[in-house]
Computed example of a mutant assay.
Amino acid sequence: MSEPFVPFSASHLLMLLTLVVFSILLYAFRFPLRTRPKLKRFLRYALAALLAVSQAVLDAWNIAEGAWSAAYTLPLELCSITLLLSVVMLLTRSRVLYGILFFTGIGGALQALVTPNLAFGYPHIRFFQFLVAHMLIILASLYMTWIEIYRPTWRSVGLAMIFLNAAAVVVGTLDYLLGANYMFLMHKPSTPSLLDYLGPHPFYLLVEEGIALLIFVLMHLVCFVLPEKRAKMGKSRGQSAM
Score class of each variant (00 low, 15 high):
residue 178 L to D: 01
residue 213 L to K: 02
residue 174 L to V: 13
residue 179 G to V: 10
residue 157 V to S: 06
residue 169 V to C: 13
residue 178 L to I: 00
residue 177 L to S: 00
residue 214 L to P: 02
residue 178 L to P: 02
residue 189 P to V: 09
residue 159 L to I: 04
residue 211 I to Q: 03
residue 224 F to V: 10
residue 179 G to H: 09
residue 158 G to W: 10
residue 168 A to D: 09
residue 189 P to N: 08
residue 176 Y to V: 07
residue 216 F to N: 09
residue 191 T to E: 10
residue 155 R to M: 07
residue 163 F to V: 08
residue 178 L to E: 00
residue 186 M to R: 15
residue 191 T to A: 13
residue 215 I to Y: 04
residue 182 Y to N: 08
residue 160 A to L: 11
residue 151 R to I: 05
residue 183 M to C: 10
residue 176 Y to A: 13
residue 186 M to D: 08
residue 182 Y to I: 12
residue 165 N to S: 08
residue 160 A to N: 09
residue 201 H to S: 15
residue 217 V to Y: 01
residue 222 V to S: 12
residue 185 L to R: 02
residue 157 V to Y: 05
residue 176 Y to C: 00
residue 215 I to N: 07
residue 211 I to K: 03
residue 185 L to M: 06
residue 201 H to N: 15
residue 207 V to P: 04
residue 193 S to L: 06
residue 221 L to R: 12
residue 197 Y to E: 10
residue 206 L to E: 01
residue 154 W to G: 06
residue 221 L to I: 11
residue 225 V to N: 00
residue 185 L to H: 03
residue 222 V to P: 07
residue 195 L to T: 02
residue 161 M to F: 15
residue 149 I to W: 00
residue 161 M to A: 13
residue 185 L to T: 01
residue 158 G to S: 11
residue 225 V to K: 07
residue 188 K to C: 02
residue 190 S to G: 14
residue 213 L to H: 00
residue 221 L to Q: 12
residue 188 K to H: 05
residue 184 F to N: 05
residue 199 G to H: 12
residue 163 F to R: 04
residue 196 D to Q: 05
residue 185 L to A: 04
residue 220 H to R: 05
residue 174 L to E: 08
residue 188 K to E: 01
residue 155 R to L: 13
residue 214 L to K: 02
residue 155 R to D: 03
residue 175 D to I: 05
residue 153 T to Y: 02
residue 202 P to D: 05
residue 216 F to D: 03
residue 215 I to F: 11
residue 209 E to N: 11
residue 157 V to I: 15
residue 155 R to Y: 00
residue 201 H to D: 12
residue 216 F to K: 04
residue 163 F to N: 03
residue 207 V to Q: 03
residue 199 G to F: 13
residue 153 T to D: 12
residue 217 V to S: 05
